[in-house]
């Protein structure tokens, strides 16, 4: 439970450079989104790690329940046919 006088927690996502996805890098405490972006900038991009920042209140993230992991993720284990490993890739195709 969050202490009432503590600032809310924000999750921070940083895009390393144009074209890449935003990746989760950590979290910061802040009173609002503007401050969260400033804190994230100072904490996570001071060594040129990024060109864009997303923040979202940690409380606003809905997460899957680890207790349900069996029913959520186990069924995918034996369905190897979902992996695209049964195709012959022509030699000319380099970037697949």
């Amino acid at each position: 439970m969050q202490h009432p006088r503590e600032w809310p927690l924000f999750e921070v996502f940083v895009r390393a450079r144009g074209g890449l996805d935003h990746k989760h890098v950590g979290s910061v405490h802040a009173t609002d989104t503007r401050m969260a972006i400033e804190h994230a900038r100072d904490l996570y991009t001071r060594r040129q790690e990024g060109v864009s920042i997303w923040v979202v209140r940690s409380a606003d993230i809905a997460a899957s329940d680890p207790g349900e992991a069996d029913s959520l993720f186990e069924p995918a284990r034996d369905k190897v046919y979902r992996h695209p490993t049964f195709y012959d890739i022509p030699d000319e195709v380099k970037t697949l």
């Binding site: 405490h29 100072d42 904490l43």
Partner: peptide, 8 residues
């Protein structure tokens, strides 16, 4: 007042 402000 906060670790983050120290850094800022």
């Amino acid at each position: 007042p906060a670790l983050e402000e120290d850094l800022g």
